[in-house]
């Protein structure tokens, strides 16, 4: 079974984010690049499936990123993935969700797959749209926001998180799932994993190598960022003072009733 995990390289999540007003894009220079933390859950989910399935199951990391990110991709290999495919091409720079999903889909189809696992979103642009778009271009069922995942042969069973609870979903492979943070606790790369990752293959392909037959990148983007604004600061809350807890609670309930909130 071939499991592919899509990952993104993002600016260090603890660093302050700055937007370049001329390009309306995130400033990535001078900030350390890391593996998108959400994707670590996807890698862990893939590794657990591989450990359970055994046999000839492989886990391949797929990313659209500059070649300079190779060492970060190696971290995913250190966690235990078998190999990686990097689509690195200056022409991909500035791709929107459509361009990225299309390019990844072409590369994944060319590589062959049974299951694609993605994180729910990235910590930089945070659109959360990629898994859905990717499933569409791959032409397979897309099961998003998965908190529990089981595989029995080619029968996939999942629990999808919803606003009010969860939904049980089942489908057959090939398929795509995106996983949430509640699905597992990603492992640390072990020392042996780190050492072994040096010997694993990271194939680097251009867009043409990967079978991407349409232009992507900023010029071909189908969406445009027209304006960016910092969210307004939250207004001051209202503080109720009261002699004791009961009096305080009463005041709060009155306040909520006036606004017909309770």
């Amino acid at each position: 079974m071939k499991i592919l995990v899509t990952v993104k390289l993002v600016p260090d999540t603890t660093a302050e984010k700055r937007i370049d007003p001329s390009t309306k894009r995130l400033v990535r220079t001078g900030v350390e690049t890391v593996l998108n933390p959400f994707d670590e859950y996807a890698i862990e989910a893939a590794l657990q499936l591989k450990e359970k399935a055994g046999g000839d199951t492989t886990v391949t990391i797929v990313t659209l990123a500059p070649e300079s990110g190779k060492e970060i991709v190696r971290k995913a290999l250190a966690m235990g993935a078998d190999d990686a495919l990097m689509i690195s091409d200056p022409a991909a720079e500035g791709s929107d969700v459509w361009g990225t999903a299309y390019a990844l889909a072409q590369a994944i189809k060319k590589n062959g797959f049974d299951l694609v696992i993605a994180g729910t979103q990235s910590t930089d642009s945070t659109t959360g749209e990629l898994p859905g778009a990717l499933a569409e271009y791959l032409g397979v069922p897309g099961v998003t926001y998965v908190r529990k995942l089981d595989l029995d042969g080619t029968a996939l069973k999942a629990e999808r998180e919803t606003d009010t609870g969860y939904a049980k979903v089942s489908t057959d492979l090939p398929a795509l799932v995106s996983v949430t943070k509640s699905i597992n606790e990603p492992r640390y790369p072990s020392l042996k994993g780190i050492m072994g990752a040096k010997k694993k293959t990271i194939a680097v392909q251009t867009l043409a190598d990967a079978g991407v037959d349409k232009p992507i990148g900023s010029d071909a983007a189908r969406t445009e960022v027209t304006n960016l604004e910092t969210p307004p600061a939250r207004g001051k809350g209202q503080i109720f003072e009261a002699a004791d807890a009961v009096a305080g609670a009463t005041k709060i309930v009155e306040f909520l009733r006036e606004r017909k909130l309770v």
Binding site: E71, R74, K75, A78, Y188, P189, L191, I194, K198
Partner: peptide, 12 residues
């Protein structure tokens, strides 16, 4: 570079 990778992993 290997030592830097090791350092980052232990730090994490």
């Amino acid at each position: 570079s290997d030592q830097r990778v090791l350092r980052d992993a232990v730090r994490e």
